[in-house]
Nucleic acid binder design. Structure first.
Lengths: 196, 196, 196, 196
DNA sequence: AGCTAACCGAGACGGTACGTCCGGTCTTTGT
DNA sequence: ACAAAGACCGGACGTACCGTCTCGGTTAGCT
């Protein structure tokens, strides 16, 4: 997010007010009905100040969401399936209304806006993928996972089903279904005895 | 899609012109810059006529996409992995610009519009899921798949990774990566010798 | 005032509401604080509708003033000086607050906007000059004025002092001063006995 | 023009830069498109510095114009009509683009801003009226003018026509027309033999 | 000669209005 | 009688300036 004006002189209080107003209104109205005007009014800030620091509504929401959901590292209790279960439960919560309004709106917007998509990937997703991979490598060291498991593929198998259901409105899995999903996904990466 | 006016008196030529204009403009401008006004102008039709038969831009695009992409049954050559490879290649093409513009836009819009989401699922997705399940049951009969395989889970494992990559702009897999994805997904459903 | 959209389909009620709102707000706020937004809000009209038919705030005010002050022909009682006195009294009233707000604002704006200046001259001023000249020619026929009097010059001598005072805020003349002004101006055009 | 800050510490170089930038930009853009921001940028000065010393754009332009056009006394060659002709030629030049941009803009602004109007009258106009009256009294002493001529009326008759034409965009007089105007105006004040 | 108050540049800020775009509704007109 | 054409209200857009307000840094003039 390149900033032409001098970031040193930026008003932190305005920034906070904007991000807070954004999350509040997004929860109230939904991402689609959220407007830059409403954010400015709610935050007691001029529209110019928003446009000075962010290129679009999506960018503001991205920062607000990022700001809210600081990177929560994947838990590591030693039980890989249980750890994913709790991690995915958190993710599903973030994608479910009312809290999900911001994140889902962001995903929708990024599908249509390449710049926002770039920022979404680099600022929100990459760090979480890194956290995922770290946990997976730990599992490999623990012998719970094949040492040559392809982590890119694993990422898709574990998280993909959630987003597939989100996208086509097939309903989020309940705890039991989630367990089944994880079991199946991990099955593809079980350590195997050397095939003779 | 409830239609208040008498559908019998509907002008088929207007309908065709609208759907054709929609696809043309969507490819040219992208879904986001597509407007109802532009569709009306391009189709030589009054805006009123569009709003008479469709509730929103998304509904028009949905019908246009549905109209274009008739349900193609999953291929059945006897080689399950190869069949999915060709099927998924088609799906990826439909999600990749320029052709992907309409479908991806539709997905984005549906994330924010419950009515459109409903129609998208029921008109576009359900029949394709049915086709998927049919192919899977065939594979079960062929002994390539565990007879008790959970097809809902399988759907997520096979299609999920594609949409996960779409959503977070992680890049569509090439042919080789696609093969690896399918192999891993199917591995979870291999018929197993009865565990003693 | 060229109108691109089809004037036949124009809503007369909107036009009236806009012109009425313009005069009302201009009297209340003064021309300078009058805004297109406020006119639209007061008239219950979309800003687009204003911009569809007028190029600028000034053009709206011009039409409103023109609409209000239909051409009042110069009175003709037979007494030229008295007729001018009553005519100029009317003009001075139109240039004095609160009623004068619109006209003076218009004059100020036209000084900076060539297009508006053109319309102001052609639509408001020219017909009134014509009326002036008609009255003067009558006076010539009546022998109250030199038959070769230059009417352009007379126009400036009679009306100029008023606007000179307006422009430099020297105060409008009272009835007595006005009489003196007119007497002096007309003195330059008295019929003269052939100088021997 | 009340100045709260200490005028002794005022930076003369900033003042000069501001007035120079004002005249330059006013000629380039016209008074209407001139902005305080642009003046500040062009002068390499902070907006604050402008607002510290002047209450408005108009006040800056007034000072710039005043600064430029020092009061030139009415010429006195002995030929009253010729003297006015040369004086009015200068005035007309000051009211004609490009040079006229500042003065005309100032007049326009003052029509809407009472404070500016006050300053315009007192700083620019009054001294010039005084100069006019001085020349007129000289003419009275010379016997070219009725000794009881009303100089207020004379001022209006001589200068009014110019401003009347300016205001309604009737075109500035050429040299010949100007001569005619002056002749007619002065005719009202010719010394007359005592009417019997 | 050093201190300190002020003016200075820079420019971010809350605002207001701009003129445009498009959504969705309603009206007119011609066939 | 219908549907094209398109005017209409509404509301958000992103921009331009306004006039105010910190900031450090410099500078002038009084200790």
């Amino acid at each position: 997010m390149p900033e032409s004006p001098n970031p040193l002189r930026r008003s932190e209080s305005s920034r906070r007010a904007i991000l807070d107003a954004t999350l509040k209104l997004c929860a109230e109205l939904g991402y689609g009905r959220l407007t830059v005007e409403a954010i400015a009014a709610q935050a007691g800030v001029s529209k110019k100040t928003i446009y000075r620091w962010w290129p679009s509504k999506g960018a503001v929401v991205l920062e607000a969401v990022d700001d809210m959901a600081a990177v929560a590292a994947h838990p590591n209790t030693g039980d890989l399936a249980a750890d994913f279960h709790s991690q995915l439960t958190t993710v599903i919560d973030l994608l479910t209304p009312p809290k999900g309004s911001a994140a889902v709106g962001l995903i929708a917007e990024a599908l249509q806006d390449a710049d926002l998509a770039h920022d979404l990937r680099e600022r929100l997703i990459r760090p979480r993928i890194a956290s995922f991979e770290e946990r997976m490598r730990q599992a490999q060291r623990d012998g719970q996972l094949a040492p040559d498991a392809d982590l890119d593929v694993a990422l898709g198998l574990i998280y993909g089903p959630i987003y597939h259901r989100l996208i086509f409105h097939l309903g989020m899995p309940d705890a039991e279904q989630l367990r089944t999903l994880i079991d199946h996904a991990l099955r593809a990466f079980e350590p195997r005895p050397p095939t003779q």
